[in-house]
Simulated assay, not measured.
Amino acid sequence: MKRFKSELRKNGITPMTVWNYKEVGHSQSATQDLQKLMGGKKYFDYPKPVPLIQRCIQLYTDDDSIVMDFFAGSATTAHAVMQQNAEDGGKRQYILVQIPEKTDPKKDAFQDGYKTICDIGEERIRRAGKKIKEEIDADIDYGFRCFKVDSSNMKDVYYAPADVEQLSLDGFEDNIKEDRTPEDLLIQVMLDLGILLSSDIETQNIAGKKVFSVADGYLLACFDKNVTEETVTEIAKKKPFYAVFRDSSMANDSVAANFEQIFETYSSETVRKVL
Rank of each mutant, 00 (worst) to 15 (best):
F245K: 08
T76W: 01
I99H: 10
Q111P: 01
E173P: 03
S168D: 13
D69Y: 00
P182E: 06
N153R: 06
V24E: 00
V255W: 09
D62Y: 13
A257P: 05
C56S: 06
Y21G: 04
A236G: 12
D247N: 15
G25M: 03
V67T: 06
G89R: 02
Y46S: 14
E134K: 07
K155V: 05
I201P: 01
D141Y: 08
V244H: 15
M250E: 09
T233F: 09
D150K: 14
V67E: 03
F147K: 08
Q58T: 14
I57V: 08
G129I: 05
L186Q: 03
A257S: 09
I120Q: 08
T116L: 02
E229A: 12
S65L: 08
Q204M: 14
I57E: 00
L96F: 00
A256R: 14
P161R: 01
F147T: 00
E7Q: 12
N20T: 12
G129F: 06
N258F: 13
N175K: 12
E183R: 07
L8S: 08
F147R: 05
T77P: 08
L196H: 13
F259W: 15
V18M: 10
G194I: 09
Q58D: 15
H26P: 03
P51T: 00
F172W: 02
A160E: 15
G89K: 04
L34D: 06
A30F: 02
Q98N: 07
F263D: 01
T17D: 10
V227T: 10
P100R: 06
R124L: 01
E23F: 03
F70P: 07
R180S: 04
A128W: 02
M38K: 03
M82E: 09
A72M: 05
T61P: 08
D63G: 02
Y46I: 11
V50T: 05
I206K: 01
A256H: 11
I195F: 06
F263P: 01
A221D: 10
I95Q: 05
M1V: 10
I132M: 03
L219G: 10
L52K: 01
E101Y: 07
T14L: 15
D174G: 02
R180D: 07
